[in-house]
Write a protein that binds this DNA or RNA. Structure first.
Lengths: 227, 227
DNA sequence: TAGATTGTTAATCGATTAACAATC
DNA sequence: TAGATTGTTAATCGATTAACAATC
């Protein structure tokens, strides 16, 4: 599997200092998806031009983005798909398992629990929480439903670092605070409110209404999609 | 309601030409949410400094973003919340109703159907589609479930311009194509694959695995959230 | 009026692209 | 070797911030 380990003649090289721009990191996820696709189709190498074209980026941008994290390419050849894939997974932190806590077992919670994409990416919902006493103690999709008050216990038990909020807007801030005090480090928020957490806690949110609103703007203004 | 109509002494003013940067438009949605919040709390005016602070932007950025679309502020006063709110709604196109088609009635589809945020924003799912014959003809949350083959008919009937894809990855491209040929102009895609549509069709997608992946990167790299 | 705050221009900063020597 | 393609530097482009006259 490991195969071709290579030695680099050391060019005078210094990795850029400081945190990488957010835009670079979000493109990394797209590179990863495209590499998965290429690998499934048995393509062994890919050039920055090709990879860029597939995603609507310039070749220079692809090379620059990757160069942010190291030298992964082979002049004259391109990038080896398997190898680059593994490198990006390592960079993103998804080369290891991420146990996840899910709070809220309404339709959205159930949908997230059944979401196929997670397993592939090594995110695993290992504990579900809901305030509804009738749900507590049951098993859903192979995962036990707990009382939210047991968050701290289960976070410790399973080494959970990420949490997903899938409760109504009214309770989102509450849940966020419980997550923080339970020791969770990153929160993905699906409720339609902004939540406030200490700056050391990372936060991402998906607001369905905002997504649609952006679309409606594009439609009324006749904007065209790139690609 | 209309209240204070004002006359502008015309400064030499020209609205910036060309489409506004995507980043500006996405901040517009955030301004809108914050204005809703301020209005609920009976605040009548807000300064660019205050609005920016609440969202983690500079005062200059707020003014510049808004100036992209017109002169909405009052020197010495700030912005009138109600008025600015109405203006941004108009700009975003959400001052009118947007009938929406939802394809896919699994857990995610059901969750989207029950999503409260939509109504508030004047997005209304007026027709649901699912390939499962057992679901066709039923009513869910007050909306009839149709055969996907009836998309063109219902799109015309209800003047639907936006569609939401909530089907498994395998069928997403198929559904996208059906939507396009039915005349839908904007697609919000929740499936974990990139879909390909003609450039005149606007597209946005929400990929849960990517969101979590971005979080895991931030966690392993000790990045901090702004705000 | 004095104080506050806008809209806008100029200055700064950061991100993308072009170009090319180094390399396979 | 000749052709392809990288990593990196310099040039360009665009977005953010600072500053301030105009205005209420």
């Amino acid at each position: 599997m490991a195969g071709s380990q290579r030695k680099r003649t050391s060019r005078a090289t210094e990795l850029p200092t400081g945190p990488p721009p957010k835009a670079v990191v979000s493109r990394l996820s797209l590179y990863l998806r495209e590499l998965q696709h290429l690998i499934r189709n048995d393509q062994t190498t890919v050039s920055s031009t090709d990879l860029g074209q597939r995603l609507g980026f310039s070749d220079a941008q692809v090379r620059k983005d990757l160069a942010y994290f190291g030298q992964f390419g082979y002049p004259g050849i391109g990038y080896r798909c398997q190898e680059l894939h593994a490198q990006i997974k390592r960079i993103m932190g998804t080369d290891r398992d991420w146990p996840v806590a899910l709070v809220g077992l309404g339709n959205l919670g159930r949908a997230l629990l059944g979401y196929k994409g997670f397993g592939l990416q090594r995110f695993q919902v290992v504990a579900v929480f809901d305030a509804d006493a009738r749900k507590i103690g049951r098993m859903v999709a192979g995962v036990a439903v707990h009382d939210p008050r047991d968050l701290p216990k289960l976070v410790k038990q399973h080494d959970i670092r990420l949490g997903i909020i899938a409760v109504p807007a009214e309770s989102a801030q509450d849940v966020a605070e419980q997550m923080v005090s339970a020791g969770i480090e990153g929160i993905l928020n699906f409720a339609a409110v902004r939540i406030t957490v200490p700056p050391r806690i990372r936060q991402a949110s998906v607001d369905l209404a905002i997504e649609l609103e952006q679309l409606s703007f594009a439609v009324v203004n006749g904007l065209r999609n790139p690609t």
